[in-house]
C-alpha cells in the first residue's frame, strides 16, 4: 500500500504542477459550460434542451472526464518514453503498484473536477433563475465515478501502447467521438435511425444518459439503471484490460 500511495502521490503532484492540466481539466469544461449557457439563453427556450443547465452540467462533467483520460495517457506514455519507469522497474515495485499509482490520483482528480463543474453549474443555475437540485448534483457526482474509471481505463491503454506523441492524438479522437456520440452537445435520443443506433453502440452515450437521469433523480431502469450497469461493465473491462496491458508491456520491456 505504501508503494502504491507513494507513486500515486508523485503522479498527483506531477499533474497539479502542470499548468496544462488546469487549462484542459478545469478551464476548458468551465468555458464550455458558460458558453453553452449563453447560447441556451440566446435561443428560444424549447429549441435545444441539451443546453439547459440540468442537461448541460452532467454532459460537461462527462466531457471533462475525457481530458483526465488524455492526461492519464500522457503521464504514462511520458514515463515510459524516458527511463523513469525503468528505474522503478529495478525497485521492489510491482506492476500492480504502478497501475494503482496511476489510477488512484486520476480518479481523485476526476472527482474533484466533477465537483468544481457542479459548483460552477450551481452558481450559473442561480444566476439564470433555474436552480439545480443539490440532491441531483450529489447523486450525479457519484454516478459519474464509474465513467471516470472508464476514461482512465482508456488513458491507461493508450499510454501503455503508444508513445507521448501518438497517445494524445488518439485521446483527441475519443474526445471527439465521445462528445459527438455521447450526446453531450445535442440530444442523441431524439435523432433516431442509424445515428441513434451508433450512439447506443458507444459507451459514452450511457455515461451521459445515466448522469442526466441522476441529475433529475430519475432512477427508472431504462433511464438510469441500465445505462449505469453498461458504464460499470465498460469501466471494469477497460480498467482490467489497461492493467493487463500494462503488466504485459512491463514483462515485454523486461524481456
Amino acid at each position: 500500500m505504501n508503494r502504491k500511495m507513494a507513486f500515486a502521490s508523485r503522479n498527483i503532484k506531477e499533474l497539479l504542477r502542470d499548468p496544462l492540466g488546469y487549462i484542459f481539466c478545469i478551464g476548458f469544461p468551465l468555458i464550455m459550460l458558460v458558453l453553452m449557457t449563453i447560447i441556451d439563453q440566446s435561443i428560444p427556450k424549447e429549441s435545444v434542451k441539451t443546453f439547459h443547465i440540468e442537461n448541460l452540467a452532467p454532459g460537461v462533467a462527462v466531457f471533462g472526464q475525457m481530458f483526465v483520460m488524455l492526461f492519464t495517457a500522457l503521464n504514462i506514455s511520458t514515463d515510459r518514453g524516458g527511463t523513469f519507469l525503468m528505474r522503478l522497474y529495478a525497485t521492489p515495485m510491482t506492476a500492480g503498484d504502478l497501475t494503482a499509482g496511476y489510477i488512484i490520483p486520476m480518479l481523485i482528480v476526476s472527482v474533484v473536477q466533477c465537483i468544481i463543474t457542479f459548483i460552477a453549474a450551481f452558481i450559473i443555475s442561480i444566476i439564470i433563475g433555474n436552480t439545480l437540485s443539490i440532491a441531483g448534483m450529489l447523486v450525479c457526482i457519484l454516478t459519474l465515478i464509474p465513467s471516470a474509471l472508464m476514461f482512465i481505463g482508456f488513458g491507461l491503454i493508450f499510454g501503455v501502447l503508444f508513445n507521448e506523441k501518438t497517445s494524445p492524438g488518439l485521446c483527441s479522437i475519443i474526445i471527439s467521438l465521445g462528445g459527438f456520440f455521447g450526446g453531450i452537445w445535442f440530444d442523441a435520443q431524439s435523432t433516431g435511425g442509424v445515428m441513434l443506433k451508433i450512439c447506443k453502440c458507444m459507451p459514452f452515450f450511457y455515461c451521459t444518459k445515466s448522469a442526466r437521469s441522476a441529475m433529475t433523480l430519475d432512477f427508472s431502469g431504462e433511464a438510469f439503471l441500465l445505462p449505469l450497469v453498461i458504464v460499470l461493465v465498460c469501466a471494469f473491462a477497460l480498467t482490467a484490460l489497461g492493467c493487463f496491458t500494462f503488466s504485459k508491456k512491463m514483462r515485454a520491456d523486461l524481456g
Binding site: R10, R17, G82, T83, R87
Partner: peptide, 14 residues
C-alpha cells in the same frame, strides 16, 4: 541494488 540509468530518470516536477 540501486541503479542510476544513463538518462537521469528523475521526476521532473518534483
Amino acid at each position: 541494488i540501486g541503479i542510476s540509468p544513463q538518462d537521469t530518470a528523475v521526476a521532473g516536477r518534483l
